[in-house]
Design a protein around this nucleic acid. Structure first.
Lengths: 122, 122
DNA sequence: ATAATTCTACTAAAAAGTTAGTAGTAGTAC
DNA sequence: GTACTACTACTAACTTTTTAGTAGAATTAT
């Protein structure tokens, strides 16, 4: 899958928040200050359509943009990169790292073990 | 911590492979084909010194570059970004995701649980 | 119909990132 | 000494990414 630039990524994150898609005005509303120019978003969004990350649909006067690539699918490649870059492509290595490096409460640990085991039996 | 560009990141990954640091020639040797121009690396490396990711030390005629920011520290911020971007900053959420989404062998699951539990008691 | 508003298309240019040429310096071989 | 090699400094140009202005089309209000 094609990589996204910082701005493209940011805009995708916003659009992924809505099933039905968003107008440029909506996207602008969800971006933090300092907000970019309306036309800046319009440009980026057009690039994202060309990259096949978005589709547009004309509603009245305006275009509404909807995600064509799911958050899940994009996240997967993002995580794959981390796994490859830092953990020799090994998921257990990566998870072991998290388990060791970070503080988890007893409850969180119990929950985690429950999830892992249920996966095993399921 | 400052973000790195693609090329900068790639060169840091190479330099992190060596404790004592590397000369530009060494870095070039470790990069995959098509290899960039010698001076391209020299430029990037100089940027990395300015960003305080590297220090240089003159050995004879050449500069040797050594990492100033550890792989571990950089990795941490990289992972933090993923955690924030996709898992609402929750580590258990992120780990649960991995456990559910990916295929782990019984042995891997057992190993993982062992690690998590040993963390708990230790 | 005219004025005001809102959106898109087109365009350009600024900023960031990457690439590499030229020249000069230092070391080594002859 | 001169020739050869390897490196660095300086610089420029090119590509990619980001920003935003201008103009014109469509919509709404008066």
């Amino acid at each position: 899958m094609q990589k996204l630039t910082t701005r493209e990524d940011q805009i995708m994150q916003v659009i992924w928040q809505s099933e039905e898609g968003m107008f440029i005005r909506d996207i602008l509303g969800h971006l933090p200050d300092p907000k970019p120019h309306y036309n800046t978003i319009a440009t980026i969004v057009k690039i994202l359509v060309k990259k096949a990350f978005l589709t547009s649909e004309k509603l009245g006067n305006s275009d509404r943009y909807r995600a064509l690539v799911s958050l899940e699918r994009y996240r997967k490649t993002d995580i794959l990169d981390i796994k490859k870059k830092y953990f020799n492509n090994s998921l257990p290595k990566m998870m072991a790292h998290f388990a060791k490096e970070e503080q988890l409460s007893d409850a969180e640990i119990a929950e985690l073990i429950r999830i892992i085991k249920s996966k095993k039996s399921g």
